[in-house]
């Protein structure tokens, strides 16, 4: 092979890998992402039902947590204006409490009940998930320090 042919082989190989990986990324980006919605957006019907994975963020509504027998938990996520009922089977994070910020990940059923397969709360006392902060800010009920409420001191 000449130098030119070798270079062409290399370029063709690089091009193939690049094209395949770009294709994979585009395919995954169109079907395998999770959209974030606030309870109000869901109430207004802006969120897709069925297969689309969603994350909803807000506060755990006071008095809404119901523990069934077994590990099933029902609670409502609220942005103080609208609520979304959530069911979840599993262990809730350590810092999951009523009135505290939470992000639930899963799918929205046709009955409007959100089935979560993952529930995230804060990592520590000073920290609230950014999505929750944004959700509350959107409703004008955010009372933090404006800097993202990461640090209380």
């Amino acid at each position: 092979m000449t130098r030119k042919q070798r270079r062409l082989t290399l370029i063709a190989a690089a091009g193939t890998v690049l094209a395949v990986s770009a294709g994979l990324v585009l395919n995954a980006a169109s079907s395998r992402i999770t959209l974030f919605k606030t309870p109000t957006e869901i109430a207004e019907g802006l969120a897709g039902q069925g297969d689309q994975r969603l994350r909803i963020g807000g506060l755990v509504k006071d008095g809404s947590v119901l523990r069934g027998e077994g590990a099933t938990v029902r609670f409502a996520v609220t942005d103080t204006v609208n609520d979304v009922p959530v069911t979840y089977v599993g262990l809730l994070p350590d810092l999951f409490r009523e009135g505290q910020g939470v992000v639930a990940e899963g799918r929205l059923g046709p009955d409007g009940v959100f089935t979560a397969d993952n529930v995230l709360a804060k990592h520590d006392e000073n920290y609230m998930p950014k999505e929750v902060v944004d959700s509350l800010k959107a409703q004008g009920v955010w009372e933090g320090d404006g800097a993202g409420a990461m640090k209380s001191n």
């Binding site: 992402i33 974030f36 994350r55």
Partner: peptide, 8 residues
């Protein structure tokens, strides 16, 4: 806002 996780 979207999040990209394991499926991606």
């Amino acid at each position: 806002k979207i999040s990209v996780g394991e499926p991606f």
